[in-house]
Amino acid sequence: MRLIRFYRTAIGKKIVVAVTGVVLFAFLILHMFGNLKVFFGPTALDQYALHLRTIGEGIFGWGGVLWITRGVLIVSVLAHIITVILLVIQNRRARPVKYRKHRTQAATIAARLMEASGLLILVFVVLHILQFTTGDIQPAPVLFSEQDGHMMADVYRNLYAAFSIWWVAWLYIFAMACICVHLYHGGWSFLQTLGFDNQDRNFGARIWAWCLSVGLFIGFSSVPLGFWTGYLPAPEGTPSLTADAQSTDTSETTHGKSH
């Protein structure tokens, strides 16, 4: 009851957006650190991918924790997006007649682009999952192999294959730029929404948002950039770029199992 009333108000909704944003934000940071394992060599990365699935195996089973995390993320993304849509509707309604002339003065470009950058992120996330997680889209072949008795993607190999294609690499970098822009505003804005702001904190909050968003951008972009420039070496036993497309089906069965 209390929550419904809370959610009905604009501030309540904004707080939901902020909290879910922070969850996604936190995920992005972990995700980035995971990705950076790529610089320690193929084994490190693949080990990490395996590790994600074996954490808490004793309690939740193989990949259990991963699925719980995915669940939280999916709920957050949905809540974030649905709430944002409700807010956008409310905001549009609040000004039925538009100005002939209207100049924004103080809003940062990032703030003005929240809706656009958010939308691009959404498109990207869908593509990203379809590509590397499910393997439904394959600009470069995505390989799976058996590890520990389960089918798993060959992470390093797949990354190498994908990011060797120039436009895939740059598409990812562009998407990271969108995230960076979204979070330059979001990283400051959620502090404001959750009420951390005060007289002497505002400047600090801006710096913090800048560091985080740019940090994420650099961290994430370094991976496609590393492969594309050739800084990151090809995996051992150079992949057969003609690998059978059947592997896609395999992956689906794999996922079926890990439920």
Binding site: A10, Q90, N91, A106, Q192
Partner: peptide, 12 residues
């Protein structure tokens, strides 16, 4: 019927 805040800071 007022809108929500996106923290644009235009108001300030």
């Amino acid at each position: 019927g007022f809108g929500a805040c996106t923290n644009y800071a235009e108001c300030q």
